[in-house]
Structures are given as C-alpha cells and as structure tokens.
C-alpha cells in the first residue's frame, strides 16, 4: 500500500500544476480561438461566422498600422539591444574594477515595471521638460527632440525606452556566455598571435550562437507582447501612430466592443509567438537529449 502510494505520489503532486496550466493556458487559448469565429460584440456570442473576422481584421487600417509598428519596433529593439548588450558585456569582461557593483546598475531598468519605465521616459522625452531642457542648460540651445509628439517618429521613442529597459539584461545573458567560453581556446588563439578584436570577432562571438538564439527568442516574445510600455508612454498615439497588436486587441475587445475582432487579433499574436517558441523549445529539447 505504502509502496504503491510512493509510486503514485509524484504524479499525484504534479497533477494540479499540470491541470492548471493545461486548462488556463491551452483551454483559454482554445476558447479565444472559438470566439474568433463568432460575431461576439460587447458580450460573448456563439453565432459562428466562419473566417469573417479574419477577413475583416486584415482589412482594418489600425491592424495594418499595428503590424507595421510591430515590425519596426521588433527589428530595431532586437538589433539594438543585442549590439548594445554585447558591447557592454565585452566591456565588463575586461576585468573591470568593482564589477559586482556595476552589474546591478545595468540590470536595474529590467527590474522596473514597464509602466514606470514608460511614464519616466514619457516625461523625460517630453519637449520642454526633460532631455531637451537639459541640453539647453548645457548650452546646446538649438537641441530639439520632439519625436514623442510626432506621428512619424513616436514609434522610435518606444524603441529607445525599450532598449534602455532590456539591454542590461541582454548584457547579462551575453556576459554569462562570454564567461562560458573555454579559456584554453582563447590562450591557443593568443599563442597563434591573434589580437583582442580578432579573438572576439572570429572565435568568441561565433561560439556564442546559442546565447544569441536565446536572446532573440526572449526579445522577440517581449516585442510581440509589448503593451504596458505603449500604454504608459504614448497611449498608442499620437493618433493611432504607435498602435501595437496588444493595444489593438485591448481597444477592439473592450473599448470598441468588437470582441470577435479582438479575439481574432489575439489568435494572430498567438500564432506569431508559436512560430518562434515552438522551434526554440524543440531545439532546446533535442540539445538536452544529446547531453
């Protein structure tokens, strides 16, 4: 009896977590999927309309704007974060004094809520209050920075804030990667006469491919999910110039009472995430299997 219990116990204690995740993540995703095929407006309805919502969604200017914005935002965010993160990681890897004191400072932005970050940057970039004002103080009178109020440039201010928030954290990932490179290989390269920069570009960075992949997946999924930063910083404005898929989803579901369309946009977002996460999980699993 006790033995049988011992045998079943692991499964028994695992069950709640398993069921909870299955139900609340996949169950609810399925429910969202169902809603995307209905004509739900303010309340959920179960009159199925086929792919009508999908057709409608891709005809909406706001949705197209959201997708274009996501593409701009994600590309710049990932590229700049990776470059800045890598450079800071290499800098920190040069036997810096008091490195332990510095690292948390680089990481602090990541520990803040996107709401706080967004609000702080909103004011900081506001013409007349923050940065512009400081530059004027330092004698640069012609300095002007009005991007956040500009329809064409507001999206880039989101990139600035997001890069500020995440690059320290990307740095931490790269730093761990750098520290993981075998010293023997570096020493061998040095004996062969390779200089510092060459060692980095030819040996170390190529060896960090898995770290780049992880960083890409983490940053990409953050980019697709970006919501609170937009809400705090621009509120999707000026106009709808910084609309993102997540803000679109929210405003169509709750403000415009188009729950069907909202659910459809959520399904599209899910598909984007799946397209990134599934191959990644798969590769991680097969890598783990070889170990």
């Amino acid at each position: 009896m006790i033995d049988r219990l011992q045998q079943w116990l692991p499964r028994l204690v695992l069950a709640p977590s398993f069921i909870v995740i299955l139900l609340f993540v996949y169950g609810f995703i399925a429910y969202t999927g169902v809603l995307s095929f209905t004509d739900s407006k303010m309340l959920a309805s179960y009159d199925f309309v086929g792919f009508e919502n999908y057709a409608k969604l891709f005809g909406l200017t706001n949705w197209k704007t959201a997708l274009v914005n996501l593409a701009i935002f994600a590309t710049l965010y990932i590229v700049i974060c990776s470059v800045v993160g890598l450079l800071i990681a290499i800098l920190l890897d040069q036997k810096i004094r008091a490195e332990g004191l510095l690292r948390p400072i680089y990481l602090y932005p990541m520990a803040l809520s996107f709401i706080v970050t967004g609000t702080a940057w909103k004011w900081f970039l506001d013409p007349g209050i923050g940065l512009e004002n400081i530059m004027h103080l330092w004698g640069w009178d012609s300095f002007s920075f009005t991007w956040i109020k500009d329809r064409d440039f507001a999206i880039y201010t989101l990139v600035i804030a997001a890069v500020w928030q995440s690059s320290g954290f990307v740095m931490a990932m790269f730093l761990a990667g750098l520290r993981g490179v075998d010293n023997e290989i570096i020493r061998a390269a040095q004996i062969d006469g390779a200089t510092g920069i060459r060692i980095y570009t030819r040996i170390i960075v190529p060896m960090m491919r898995p770290v780049f992949l992880s960083a890409f997946v983490v940053l990409m999924h953050l980019a697709i999910k970006v919501y609170d930063l937009v809400i705090a910083m621009t509120g999707g404005g000026p106009g709808r110039a910084t609309e993102m898929p997540a803000t679109f989803m929210y405003s169509y579901t709750f403000t415009r009472n188009q729950m069907g369309i909202g659910a459809t946009s959520a399904v599209i977002m899910l598909m984007m995430i799946f397209a990134i996460v599934v191959p990644y999980v798969y590769s991680e699993l097969s890598r783990g299997g070889r170990r």
Binding site: T32, A44, H221, M269, V278
Partner: peptide
C-alpha cells in the same frame, strides 16, 4: 519545457476568457 513555454504566450490570448 512545455510548462515554461506557456510563460511566453501573450496574455492577450487568454484575456477574454478570464475577463468573461
């Protein structure tokens, strides 16, 4: 890995059911 991958899902995907 399966459990962990769910953490990457956008919250928007489950917002409506939870709201309802």
């Amino acid at each position: 890995m399966w459990m962990l991958s769910t953490k990457m899902m956008p919250a928007a995907g489950v917002l409506v059911p939870i709201y309802l």
